[in-house]
Design a protein around this nucleic acid. Structure first.
Lengths: 243, 243
DNA sequence: CCTCTAAACTTGTTTAAACAAGTAATTGAC
DNA sequence: GTCAATTACTTGTTTAAACAAGTTTAGAGG
C-alpha cells in the first residue's frame, strides 16, 4: 500500500512502461504534462521519475526529456536486486517456492566466525541451514545467522515458512538495508549433496554474503546464500557519477 | 569537480565517515545542525544524505536521527559497484593496471549475436578482446562490442589505454547508465589460456554482461567481462522497499 | 533558401515554508 | 518517586517559486 504520492506515481509510471504504454526509446510526456496528469507538484513528480532512473527504466536528458530505455528481461530463473525473501521473489515470478530446514541450532560466535559474519565473538545466535526449492528443484543452500536477542522465539516451524514474514508481522521489526557481497566459491561436499550437483560438471557456486540491518541500527542477520551456478542471475543498474 | 552544492556536501560527509570523524553506530549531527554547518537549505542537505543511504554508509530513522553504519571493506581485490573503467577502479584501490589487446576487429552483428548483445542484426560494430592485468596478474578477459557509428575512430592504441577516457574527453560522449547481469559460466579454453587458469582447479568464471547507454539514449556498448573467480567481488547495498 | 537570433521549450539545482509522523525529554499531577 | 501528558526534538512528505543550463522551434533578416 503506497501511502506517499510519489510512490503511487512511481508505480503507475512503472506499470505503464512495462505494459508498453510508452514505446522503447521514445520520450515520456514532459514534466509539466505529467504534473497536470497527476495533479501534483514538480518535486513530487521528479522524485517518482528519479526512482525509475535508478531502476534503469528511463534516462533523463537535460533540455531534451525523459527517454524510456526499459526492455523486458528474458527468461528469468531467479532474480535478486532488492531485499526480498526467497518466497517473495519466487511468487513474484510466478513460481512455486518450498523450503526445507536441514539444521536448526543455536550457539555463540567464535573468534573465527566473528571475522566472516561481523558479529562480535561470544554473541548468541540462531544458526539455520535451509534448502530453497523452486518448482521442486533445489536451488539455494542458505546458512543463516540470526542475532538471538533481536529475533526471540524463532522456531524450526517459522524457518520452514518465511522468517521475514515473522520478523515483520509478529515481531514488528523493520528491515532497512542489506550489504551484500557476491563471490564465486568452490563447491563443497555439502553443496553437492543437497543441491544434487555433480562436481564433474560445475565445481563452483555463486555465493551471496549479506549483512542485514533493522531500524534500530543493529545488524541482526548474517547470511551466506550458495546458489546453483546455472540458475543464478543478479541484475543491477549502475549510474555514471559526474566524477 | 563537483559543481552542485549537494555533491560537495555528500563528498565531505562521506570522507568524514570514512575517516572515523563519526563513530560506527553513532548518530550523525541532526539535519538542523548540518544545515548550519554547511549553510544550505534542508532539501540540499537531505539530498546529500540520501546519497549516503544508497551507498550503505548511513541509515536514517524517522524521529531518531541518522546512524553511521559504515564499515571499511577488508581485503578488496577488485570491486565494482558503479560505472568505472578498469583503469579507474584499479587506480582508486592503489593498484597498477595494465591492458593488452588480444584482438581488434570490426564486423556486422549476426542474428545470433543480436540475441545476446541487444544490437540489431546487421549493425556495424568494433569487436575487441582485451586482457586486464592488475599488478602483472591477468584477472579479466573482456569482450567489447562498440557501436561503430557512435564510437568513430577507435583504434587499437586507444583500446590499450582507456576507451572511456577517449569517449569522454575526445568524443565528448556522456556515459549515463549501464544495465548489468552477473552470472557464473563454465570456463572456456580461451579463458584458461589467457588467464592462466587450470580447469582442474576452478572450472567456472564470474561473468558480468553489460549494456551501456550514452546521453543520446543509444546503447553504444555491449561487454562481457569474464573474471577470475578467485579474485572477483561485487559489492551492493539493497534497501528494503515499503512494499 | 539559408543563417543567425531570440523565444519557448526541456530538465537540473536551490531555497523556503508548512505539515505529518515518529521519538525523546520535560513537566506536572498524584 | 511514578506515571501520564505535554513539549521539543528528530526525519518524512509536499508545495511553491526562482533561477540555471541545455535543446528545439520560430522567426527575422539577408
Amino acid at each position: 500500500m503506497p501511502k506517499a504520492i510519489y510512490e503511487t506515481i512511481y508505480k503507475d509510471l512503472k506499470q505503464k512502461i512495462e505494459n508498453d504504454v510508452f514505446a522503447y526509446q521514445e520520450l515520456l510526456p514532459s514534466e509539466n504534462t505529467l504534473i497536470r496528469t497527476y495533479d501534483c507538484s514538480r518535486n513530487t513528480l521528479r522524485r517518482a521519475v528519479s526512482l525509475l532512473v535508478t531502476d534503469g527504466y528511463v534516462q533523463t536528458m537535460q533540455g531534451k526529456g525523459v527517454r524510456n530505455i526499459y526492455q523486458p528481461i528474458t527468461q528469468t530463473a531467479f532474480t535478486i536486486g532488492e531485499i526480498e525473501s526467497f518466497r517473495e521473489s519466487a511468487l513474484r515470478n510466478g513460481h512455486h517456492p518450498h523450503t526445507s530446514v536441514l539444521l536448526f541450532t543455536e550457539f555463540a560466535i567464535s573468534e573465527k566466525q566473528a571475522q566472516t559474519t561481523g558479529f562480535p565473538a561470544g554473541t548468541q545466535i540462531y544458526y539455520i541451514q535451509r534448502l530453497h526449492y523452486l518448482d521442486d528443484m533445489p536451488l539455494i543452500l542458505n546458512h543463516n545467522y540470526f542475532l538471538k536477542e533481536a529475533v526471540p522465539g524463532l522456531t524450526k516451524e517459522i524457518a520452514e515458512n518465511s522468517i521475514y514474514h515473522y520478523l515483520e508481522n509478529t515481531l514488528h521489526m523493520t528491515i532497512v538495508n542489506s550489504k551484500r557481497i557476491m563471490t564465486v566459491e568452490k563447491m563443497t561436499q555439502i553443496d553437492e549433496k543437497y543441491l544434487k550437483m555433480n562436481a564433474e560438471d560445475y565445481n563452483c557456486m555463486a555465493v551471496v554474503s549479506s549483512q542485514t540491518y533493522n531500524s534500530d541500527g543493529v545488524m541482526f542477520e548474517y547470511t551466506q546464500s550458495r546458489h546453483r551456478p546455472d540458475h543464478f542471475r543478479f541484475y543491477d543498474n549502475a549510474v555514471r557519477k559526474s566524477v
